[in-house]
Computed example of a mutant assay.
Amino acid sequence: MFWWCNEVRPGVSVAFTDTGAGNLALHVGDNPAEVLARRVRVEQAAGLEGGKFQYMNQVHGNTVEFIDIHRAGPTADAMVSAVTVSNTAAQPLAVMVADCVPVVFVGNGADNEPVIAVAHAGRPGVASAVVPATVEEMRKHGAVDIRAWLGPSICGSCYEVPAELRDEVAALVPATWSATSWGTPSLDLPAGVRAQLEAMDVTVEYSGECTLEHNSLFSYRRDSRTGRFAGLVWTHD
């Protein structure tokens, strides 16, 4: 069910699912009823009593949405939530991937209440700075001492791309420049995200394994008809 799961501060947990949880995406041709049933099982495993994770319609952009109440999936590639003026708890958040970098954030807000966020950092998202945009949105909502967890994603030794594409992305985010283990051009998206977070003074607490190298994780490069696993963050008693 969970590839990695931890209570990262009192009352806040972060997790990344694996293939044991099944495909959690509605856009890959899977049976919608079965996908929704899997999402419920993940929510139950996380201990969400009657709550739901907020998913989004991810489009490889850099739009960040603030979520104060669960709603039909917004079109965005990052979401932020926090305690609202009506004292509603932060909305549990989810980001789906199958090689892109799922980034989960936790910061301290007013009265030490958590400000939480997720970001979908694929190649276009890294190049267009979706991760820095997410940090900026968290800070607009009072977050300080922000920490980040990078879930499993394809590594620089495996993510082969044309040389022109590597140069294009590395011109924007130099840390992404890489080569595969067999010597061809590649991009290291996790390294790029870590560099962006370091520049924003955000501490990286965890950086996950390579999706292509582990069959217990979905990988689009391994199989373009694959499902999606999720990065999750939620608050609890």
Rank of each mutant, 00 (worst) to 15 (best):
W4T: 08
C5W: 00
R9H: 03
R9V: 14
P10V: 15
S13T: 06
V14N: 00
V14T: 02
A15P: 03
F16Q: 00
G20S: 06
A21D: 03
A21I: 04
G22F: 02
L24H: 06
H27E: 13
V28G: 07
V28R: 15
V28W: 04
V28C: 05
D30S: 06
A33Y: 10
A33H: 10
V35D: 02
R39Q: 08
V40T: 12
V40L: 09
R41S: 13
R41G: 10
E43A: 15
A45L: 00
G50L: 03
H60W: 15
H60F: 15
H60Y: 12
G61L: 05
T63L: 09
T63Q: 05
D68T: 04
D68Q: 03
H70Y: 10
G73W: 14
T75M: 11
D77T: 01
A78N: 09
A82N: 02
N87D: 14
T88M: 10
Q91T: 10
A94V: 09
D99M: 07
D99S: 08
P102A: 01
P102R: 00
V104K: 00
F105I: 02
V106E: 00
G107V: 05
N108Y: 10
G109T: 02
P114Q: 03
I116K: 00
G122I: 00
R123D: 01
G125W: 02
V126L: 01
V126D: 00
S128Y: 07
S128P: 02
P132A: 08
V135H: 04
E137R: 08
G142C: 10
A143R: 02
V144D: 05
I146R: 01
W149M: 03
G151S: 14
P152E: 01
S153Q: 05
I154P: 02
C155A: 15
C155Q: 09
E160L: 14
E160C: 07
V161D: 00
P162E: 07
E164L: 11
A170Q: 06
A170M: 05
P174K: 13
P174V: 13
A175M: 11
T176C: 11
W177N: 13
S178L: 08
A179F: 15
A179H: 12
A179P: 07
A179E: 11
T180W: 06
S181K: 15
S181Y: 13
L187Q: 04
L187S: 02
L187C: 07
D188G: 07
D188K: 04
P190D: 04
A195V: 08
A199G: 12
M200D: 12
V202D: 03
T203C: 09
V204R: 05
E205G: 09
Y206M: 06
S207G: 08
G208F: 02
E209Q: 14
C210R: 11
L212T: 09
L212S: 12
F218W: 09
F218S: 04
S219H: 13
R221T: 11
R222L: 11
T226Q: 00
F229E: 13
G231V: 08
T235G: 07
H236I: 06
D237A: 14
D237G: 09
D237M: 05
